[in-house]
Amino acid sequence: MDVSLLVVPYDSARESWSMGAGPARLLAELKPQLGYAGHRCISEVIRLQDPSPTEINSSFALNRQLAEQVRQAHTQGRFPLVLAGNCGHR
């Protein structure tokens, strides 16, 4: 199976902070394991293009980007798997 690992390394609009550090750790463990199991994986890190001063605006911006990446993965016949550091990105 082709898998798109979509990494959203944010917690409370802060990149790689607190739970936002979790997706990178998951990716480091998961990607090789999926490869060993015969899956072809690509990974894409979702980053804020224009950091907003408010958490809610940042969350909406990340979710819009994530939705587009999920659509692209689906269109390309890949299974989208989201690795997120915040419950708002699922």
Rank of each mutant, 00 (worst) to 15 (best):
L5G: 00
L5P: 02
L6G: 02
V7N: 08
Y10H: 12
D11Q: 10
D11Y: 14
D11H: 14
S12V: 12
S12G: 10
A13T: 04
A13P: 00
A13K: 02
A13N: 15
R14S: 04
R14C: 04
R14I: 12
E15L: 14
W17H: 14
M19N: 15
M19Y: 13
M19Q: 15
M19A: 15
G20P: 10
A21C: 10
G22R: 11
P23K: 00
A24R: 15
R25P: 03
R25M: 13
L27D: 04
L30F: 03
K31N: 06
P32G: 02
Q33N: 13
L34G: 02
G35K: 06
Y36T: 12
A37E: 12
G38Q: 12
H39F: 10
R40K: 11
R40F: 04
I42R: 15
I42G: 13
I42H: 14
I42M: 08
S43W: 11
E44S: 13
V45G: 04
R47Q: 11
R47H: 13
L48K: 09
Q49M: 06
Q49K: 13
Q49Y: 05
D50H: 14
D50A: 12
S52M: 09
S52E: 12
S52V: 00
E55I: 10
I56H: 08
I56Y: 04
I56N: 10
I56W: 08
N57I: 04
N57Q: 10
N57W: 04
S59C: 04
F60M: 07
F60Y: 03
A61L: 07
L62E: 06
R64E: 10
R64N: 08
L66N: 07
A67K: 09
A67S: 08
A67Y: 02
E68L: 01
Q69G: 00
Q69I: 02
V70S: 03
V70M: 09
R71Q: 07
R71V: 02
A73K: 05
A73G: 10
A73E: 07
H74R: 11
H74W: 02
H74D: 04
H74S: 06
H74F: 02
T75W: 01
T75D: 00
Q76C: 00
Q76K: 05
Q76R: 01
G77S: 05
R78N: 07
R78E: 07
F79Q: 11
L81H: 02
V82M: 07
V82I: 15
L83I: 08
A84M: 08
G85I: 11
N86H: 12
N86Q: 11
N86S: 13
G88R: 04
G88V: 14
R90D: 08
R90Y: 09
